[in-house]
Design a protein around this nucleic acid. Structure first.
Lengths: 197, 197
DNA sequence: ACTTCATAATAACATTCATTAGTTAAATGC
DNA sequence: GCATTTAACTAATGAATGTTATTATGAAGT
C-alpha cells in the first residue's frame, strides 16, 4: 500500500514511461511500436489513440527533460552564490535528476539524435545554450579566482559526461547510496582525486 | 593466398571504417546495410562478400577497441609508477584513443548493447573486468595515501564517462588543440576545479 | 434507453529491413 | 591460356517496420 496517493497516470503518461524504459534499454531505433505496445498491454495500433507518432514520444521525453534543466539554470544564475557554489549546485541537481528520473534523462541524453526537424535543431540549440551558460558560470569563477585557470567548455563537458556515468551506478549491484554517490562526485569534480597534504 | 587475403582484408577494413562512421552518426540500429553499402560505393548484397553479417561488423569494432584497452591495462599494471601516475597514464591513454580513433571508440562505447550473444556477454565481462582493474589501481592509491578516500568504483565511472565527453569536443567548432584538451582534463580530474590558495 | 465518446482490436498498407541465391566479369595462379 | 577465385551485380526472400482506416466495446451523461 503506497502511502503517497499520487494521481492516477493517464494512458499517455504510461506510454511515455514505458517508452523511456524501452528506449533506454534498447535504444530508440531498436524499439518497435509493437514492443512498446506489448509492454503497455495493448495492440500497436491502439497506441495511436494517445500519441501521434513514435517521434512524438521521443520529443515529449527529450523536451520534458531539457526544460527542467533550463528552468533550473535560470534559478541558479539568479542566485546569490559563489561560482564554486553554483557549480556544485548544478552538479547536485544533475545528479539528482539522473538518480530520480533515470530513464528519461538517459534517453534525452543518448537518443536525441533521432529527433526529426525542427525538433532536432531546437533541442541542439537548447543544449548548446545550456552549456554556454554553464561555461559562463565557470568563466566567472576563473575571473574571481575561485576556479583554476582551465578551459571552461572542457570543464563543462567533463562535468556533464561524468554525471551521465551514473547510468553505470544505477545498474550496478554493489551500489553505494545516492547521497554518498553525490558527495563522492562533488568531491572528485571540485577538488580532484589527489590528496592534498 | 596471403596476397588475396590481404586484399580482401583491406576492403573489409574500408567497410569497418565506414561502418564506424555511420554507426556513430546514426546509431547501429538506424544504419541500414543499404546506407552502409552506399557509403562504401557498392550494392548492399555485395557487402556480404566481405562480412558475414551486420552484427559481425559491430563485433569487430567493439572487440578491436576493447582489446586495445585491455592490452594497455596490462602494461600499466606492470609499470613501476605511483598510483596517481598510473591513473594519469590511463587517463591520457583513454583521451588519445578517443581523439585518434574517435569513431570506433565512440561506437564501442555506445552501441555495444546491440551485440548478440555470446559476444554481448563477453564484451560485458571484459568491460567489467577492466573497470575492476582500474578501481584496484585507485584503491591502492588510497591505501598509499596518494589519493583521497573516495569510493573507487565511483571515481572510475566518473573518469571513464568524462572521457567520453571528448565526443563533444571532437565536433565543436572552436576547439582547443588535443594536447591542451588532454592537459585540461588531467588537471581537472586529478586536482579538481577549485583553486587552492 | 439512447447517444456520445474514448479507447480498444482487427486488418491492412506500403516501405524497409537483413540476408540469400544465382550470375557475371575481371583478376590471379599455374 | 586455361582454371580458379574474388567481388561485383540483379533479383528475390520473408519478416518487420510505422502507420491508417475501420469496426467493436463499454462506460458516462442525458
Amino acid at each position: 500500500m503506497a502511502k503517497t496517493q499520487r494521481r492516477k497516470a493517464s494512458k499517455k503518461e504510461i506510454i511515455l514511461q514505458k517508452a523511456a524504459i524501452m528506449f533506454r534499454e534498447k535504444g530508440f531505433s531498436a524499439t518497435s511500436m509493437r514492443d512498446l505496445a506489448e509492454s503497455v498491454g495493448i495492440e500497436a495500433a491502439s497506441l495511436y489513440n494517445h500519441i501521434r507518432s513514435k517521434n512524438e514520444i521521443l520529443e515529449a521525453i527529450c523536451f520534458g527533460v531539457a526544460n527542467r534543466f533550463t528552468a533550473n539554470m535560470e534559478i541558479i544564475e539568479a542566485a546569490a552564490l559563489s561560482s564554486i557554489q553554483k557549480v556544485e549546485t548544478l552538479l547536485r541537481f544533475h545528479i539528482r535528476q539522473m538518480v530520480e528520473h533515470y530513464e528519461e534523462v538517459y534517453v534525452s541524453d543518448r537518443e536525441w539524435k533521432h529527433l526529426s526537424e525542427p525538433y532536432l535543431s531546437n533541442f541542439q540549440n537548447q543544449r548548446r545554450s545550456y552549456r554556454k551558460r554553464f561555461a559562463a558560470i565557470i568563466e566567472q569563477g576563473i575571473q574571481r579566482k575561485e576556479i583554476k585557470n582551465i578551459d571552461a567548455p572542457t570543464a563543462v563537458l567533463i562535468i556533464l559526461h561524468a554525471i551521465s556515468g551514473i547510468e553505470s551506478w544505477h545498474r550496478s549491484k554493489e551500489k553505494i547510496n545516492a547521497e554518498e554517490l553525490e558527495n563522492n562526485m562533488v568531491v572528485i569534480m571540485i577538488d580532484g582525486l589527489r590528496k592534498t597534504v
